[in-house]
Amino acid sequence: MNIFRLAGDMTHLASVLVLLLKIHTIKSCAGVSLRTQELYAIVFATRYLDIFTSFVSVYNTFMKLVFLGSSFSIVWYMRYHKAVHRTYDREQDTFRHWFLVLPCLVLALLIHEKFTFLEVLWTFSLYLEAVAILPQLVLLQRTRNIDNLTGQYIFLLGGYRGLYILNWIYRYFTEPHFVHWITWIAGLVQTLLYADFFYYYFLRFIGGRGVE
């Protein structure tokens, strides 16, 4: 564990907590894409399948449970909780996210580190996470102005993988044979997709107004 990865995990945790805070306290999911949340639930479900078979550390297992629990409960809230569901922008959240799942699965079957069931699904979760934010970014463009909590959620979610890139650079130079091209490229693509969001986020943030 290094400071970059810890910062990355904490940033990721913060993004989830900000979203849960928004949904649970003000009972609103305005501006939040249910489709992105569904993709993230699939990402964690396929990435943490090894939670019962390979134990890394208490921290690792705990965080996996947190991410699994929060992603599924956010989907549940947005789908079935009356008050929250009412604030869900169904008409605008129309990105065909299931069209993202199949290509990621095919790509994982073609490009992976080991051809085993767990490893292919783990690789699939990497590819899917790289594009999971797309429905949210499209919804963002359509709803134009979003509230600060949603903006902070997206900012933190984009930032965590950027910190992971620093972690991979650090581990590459400090651990022999630490080479994971698939993870690195997927993580880079994922972070680059946030580029224009970061640009507007900082512009607005500096201007002191909401994110538009």
Binding site: D9, D50, S54, S57, N60, K64, F67, W122, Y164, N167
Partner: peptide
Amino acid sequence: QDQPQKHDEL
């Protein structure tokens, strides 16, 4: 030994 490569990251 060729320890099956564990994913130690989240």
